[in-house]
Amino acid sequence: MPTVLRPLLDAIEINHGPRIELGRYFLQLAEEARQIGISLHMGRGSGRLNEVNKRNQDTWKPLGPVYDPSVSSIDEGNSIYIEGQCEGEPVLTLILRRYDWPQSTLREEWESGRFAYRDPDIQMDPGERWIAEAPAAGEISGRVVFVGGLWSHPTFRRKQLPVLSIALMRSISLATWRPDFAIGMIETGPMTRALLPLYGYPPIQPGMMIVGGWRTFESNLIWETPNMLTEHVLNSLIGPDQPDQRNRRDEGIRRARAPR
């Protein structure tokens, strides 16, 4: 089903968290995007994400099965798509996927293949393995929001878009679903060192791997709790006479440990 996009400020619903502050924060993010020539839009489902990915294979690797509704349980009820546009063309994408695991954990869902596949026994390739060695993966459960589908057009890649992307992820996750955990994966390598400062140094652990199947790679797990999401939003709000504080390191966030 095609993704219907609406301006972010028209589409966003603040169901959780500090409503007044979140409202101000969404206005702030929309203005920051506008200042670099981007308008923010929001929709449901992964249809538009897959479309943009296929149109930009020269600068973007093919997406994994977690975003493919033909094999995954992703749908309009459990996913939110964000697109930044310049003159009507997509230049920034990300998607939030909600999982509900009241009796399971990230490790169980990842290693069984259910994280990505509707029916892993049938849909996984022979020999495909998902490995979750990060210790926190065994403790992340409940309502979990996974952020992915991150891409920016090459002409916008020196405009601090990772900072804007992670800010959108935190605020939208909190306002819409208030998850027990918001998680992401950063592929092991130079990108980890480059992105962590821009993301505000969330807790991180290595050990999330995929072998065979659509792609073989190893990534680092990052995660945040509702309190951490809220703290980031409140610390990032800019008052009338305040400088931008979004890169300020909050001591409580920096010292956060693995879930217990």
Rank of each mutant, 00 (worst) to 15 (best):
A11S: 14
V66M: 14
T230R: 03
G200M: 07
A256M: 13
I222R: 05
R118H: 07
E111H: 11
R193I: 02
S236F: 01
W101Q: 04
Q160M: 06
R34C: 03
E87H: 08
L29Q: 08
V233G: 06
G43E: 01
E21T: 15
E133G: 02
T225L: 01
R97P: 12
I95T: 10
K159D: 08
P154A: 07
S219Q: 08
P259L: 13
I74E: 13
H41D: 04
R178F: 03
M1D: 07
R246A: 08
P154G: 06
R249E: 11
M208A: 02
G184W: 01
P2D: 14
I183Q: 04
V147D: 11
V233T: 04
W177L: 09
A132M: 07
I14P: 15
L22V: 15
N53S: 14
S173I: 09
W151K: 10
S72A: 12
P126N: 09
G43C: 12
S112D: 09
C86Y: 13
V91Q: 06
L29V: 03
G148T: 15
T59I: 09
K54Q: 13
A116V: 05
S79Q: 12
V163P: 00
R246F: 03
D100H: 11
D68Q: 13
A182Y: 05
E108P: 03
Q35S: 09
P69S: 12
T192N: 09
I186Q: 01
Y117E: 04
E218S: 12
W177V: 13
N53F: 11
I238V: 15
T188L: 06
F26Q: 06
I204G: 01
D68K: 01
G148L: 06
L174D: 00
L40M: 03
M42K: 11
R255D: 07
D68R: 06
G213T: 00
R98A: 10
S104D: 12
T225H: 01
H232K: 10
R34Q: 09
R257P: 02
M124L: 09
I82G: 07
P62D: 08
E108Y: 05
A11V: 12
Q245E: 00
L22H: 09
Q28S: 12
I253M: 12
L106W: 02
